[in-house]
Design a protein around this nucleic acid. Structure first.
Lengths: 240, 240
DNA sequence: ATCCATTGGTCTGTTTCCAGACTTTTGACG
DNA sequence: CGTCAAAAGTCTGGAAACAGACCAATGGAT
């Protein structure tokens, strides 16, 4: 009997370097707008605990981001590590460059993964009975995106998508969706935020929420798939 | 504007202790039958590289598993770390104990996650155009399960499920499915392998493969969902 | 009977990372 | 204007993990 591969089970135990990994994490958090421009990161001790690393290591990472001008660190009470980052207006050519920077295989992998987990999350959520508070949160996030100023759009779009995963109550699923989103951040940030696109996305977002609130898992899944397919197709177009 | 949570993005950077993590990994690999009874693990140097850890750390983990009688380590050429583990016949009460050992929230989380990623994988695979080799692999895995001796059943069942994820070509998705499986291994191993259950599963497996080969994503997803729902319902029953 | 490639076993020095105590700065508040 | 709590900054000793070289055993091949 030939042994089935099941190779992924012997994948790496640790991601590598704690310092570099932390820099990457924080940078993604900044670029995604988890902590918006002008806001500050949690206190070092608290953040170190959240990230499961020592304060020393965290400080090295913060220092690196400070040197790279992503953070402005101020001491004293009411001090902290303040985010200094406003999403740049993407210029033509940025997208092509961003896509090229990622391997073709990696892009395909990331898009596939994202499609699977986000559709899954939507379906799960649409299958669940939501509390009024959960419904309110979902609707609120949708409104946030729709009313967003252009410079806030990506951030609130991210928040909307992730809130779907979070509301399922499965932290594993939420982490997977967050991970999927991280892997395409740079690409999404390189896509200009244009009127027609926003309008299109807005309709699709509404369809997603409607399906979830109507407890129609099938429709929710299809709505998410359609929404993501648009972006995926756009990005794939730059591989030619 | 209230900041959206997006908390999962600041999740831990490293899983914790490299040694313990490695022990856990190897133990899962053994319990899942990635390396069946009598076979040996890859050479230390090679395995350490695969796992992304140093040989010293790996050896500590191997030593622990040796002490726990899961491995028989022999030196010299043709030596290695041989697996000494045959899945125990589950006894009544094992399942209840296993379910209780995991938190209720964790169980729900794991089941939700598994449902999402495995359904997603099946749908993705059914959407893709498969090469003859891929089709053959899938069919072969199905046959393997169907012809399995009772003591090999879980192992080949795992191989079947994971091969669906692997065939999508997305390593992220494959890793997610492997992870999901890991989280319910102990529970699955505590479920007796009974004739009627196998027969039932067999029909569902066939439906899954059929849908994938017919390139019917919707049917594939529904087939997987139905299949997993059975197990999930059984396990949830022990939470009462 | 011998060789020797392959594998586990051991040792040493280095780097990374951690835990925790302590110091300094700051600005809102009384 | 001084207080003081909350934050960043600093220091030290130790544990964990690594990299790489080297040793020892084993058993099939010659």
């Amino acid at each position: 009997m030939d042994a089935p591969s099941m190779l992924p089970l012997l994948r790496p135990v640790r991601s590598g370097n704690a310092f570099e990994e932390t820099v990457e994490r924080l940078l993604q958090a900044i670029k995604l707008g988890v902590v918006p421009h002008g806001e500050k990161l949690p206190p070092e001790r608290e953040l170190a605990a959240q990230l499961g690393i020592s304060r020393v290591t965290l400080r090295e990472a913060i220092r690196a981001l400070q040197d790279a001008a992503f953070l402005d660190v101020r001491r004293g009470r009411y001090g902290g590590a303040f985010v200094v980052y406003e999403p740049p207006r993407p210029e033509s050519g940025d997208l092509r460059r961003a896509v090229a920077a990622m391997g073709q295989g990696d892009l395909e992998d990331a898009l596939t993964f994202r499609m699977a987990v986000e559709c899954g999350a939507a379906e799960v959520l649409a299958s669940a009975e939501l509390t009024p508070a959960q419904r309110a949160t979902l609707v609120r996030r949708l409104e946030d995106v729709n009313e967003a100023a252009p410079e806030d759009y990506r951030r609130l779009d991210t928040a909307f998508h992730l809130s779907i995963a979070e509301l399922t109550g499965s932290s594993l699923l939420a982490a997977a969706c967050a991970d999927a989103r991280l892997r395409v951040t740079d690409l999404l940030n390189a896509i200009p935020v244009l009127g027609p696109n926003i309008e299109h996305a807005s309709v699709q977002h509404a369809a997603i929420v409607e399906a979830i609130l109507a407890r129609d898992p099938d429709a929710a899944r299809r709505a998410v798939a359609e929404h993501l397919e648009g972006t995926a197709a756009l990005l794939r177009g730059f591989l030619a």
